[in-house]
Write a protein that binds this DNA or RNA. Structure first.
Length: 268
DNA sequence: CCCGGAACCTGAAGGC
DNA sequence: TGCCTTCAGGTTCCGG
């Protein structure tokens, strides 16, 4: 499932291939993949536009166009942007962006993925919280964001309006690294715990970017390769396994309808 | 504003 | 073998 490290990997690996190219056509095999504007307008307005650069906001990937508009992608749970039609296979391709000399395939088995063509990126990403890897995201900022909240810390970490880019997997990993139980009320964390969590979030995300993302299900890099971050996971998706640190069987619970893994001994 | 649950999707996995 | 149910999860919407 693409979260910040996966989307960042797609951005850096795609950028050298698509920057400077002109869009020559758009094919849609599942029209509801276009959220805005209409499918017809989306197709016609994109033709002839040149891609000047790629950006990322949380889990949103944006292609900046020479017209000043932005083509925005959200891969949701199962989307991939691929440079080759047959990799990993030709099934589940919902859209193709044709460019001069290159085609980009939007593969998405679950059909949750979305594209927008907008004048202002902020109209899509405006409500996002701070980027956790930018200097502005300090321990004090995190403390303010968590202050007074009664929802489980796990749920708050996954709230994109609080922090941008953290999803189910990396919330579990950050909480394990910080030694905090997922069901703790966010506002109940001590300043010391918040400091630890702040460091854990950055460390977990940076390490996963270094591993080119986690290929748990349906995540492929643009060239069709898998990421390796999931091999470093301490708790996420490790159903039925034991804690690497203390050997205690990991627990699986549900928080906000999401599978949540933690070590009952290492996390307090 | 804050919180929690359903809906959107389809394939994989498990039960009988 | 095969049908049926459950699970997976990012975001949005809705109700309390």
């Amino acid at each position: 499932m693409p979260e910040l490290p996966e989307v960042e990997t797609v951005r850096t690996e795609l950028e050298p291939y698509v920057t400077g190219r002109k869009i020559t056509g758009v094919e849609l095999f599942w029209e509801r993949i276009v959220k805005q504007p209409s499918a017809d307008e989306f197709r016609s307005r994109l033709v002839g536009k040149k891609i000047t650069g790629l950006g990322r906001n949380g889990k949103y990937l944006s292609f900046q166009l020479d017209s000043g508009e932005a083509l925005i992608f959200h891969l949701k749970m199962s989307g991939s942007l691929l440079l080759k039609a047959g990799s990993p296979d030709g099934k589940y391709v919902r859209a193709v962006i044709h460019m001069d000399g290159l085609d980009l395939y939007f593969r998405d088995p679950r059909k949750f993925g979305v594209m927008w063509l907008v004048d202002d990126i902020k109209s899509v990403t405006g409500k996002l919280g701070p980027e956790p890897l930018e200097p502005g995201f300090t321990g004090d900022v995190l403390a303010d964001l968590l202050h007074g909240r009664k929802a489980p810390i796990k749920a708050v970490l996954c709230d994109q309006t609080v922090i941008a880019g953290i999803g189910n997997m990396y919330a579990d990993e950050a909480l394990f690294a910080a030694g905090i139980k997922p069901l703790r009320a966010a506002g109940s964390l001590s300043r010391k715990e918040i400091t630890k969590l702040h460091g854990a979030i950055k460390q977990v995300l940076l390490q996963a970017i270094g591993e080119k993302g986690a290929s748990v299900v349906n995540y492929y890099r643009p060239g069709g390769e898998l990421g390796k971050a999931h091999f470093q996971f301490q708790v996420a998706h490790r159903r039925g396994q034991n804690c690497n640190v203390c050997g205690t069987p990991l627990k699986r619970i549900t928080v906000r309808n999401r599978g949540t893994y933690f070590c009952p001994k290492c996390q307090h």
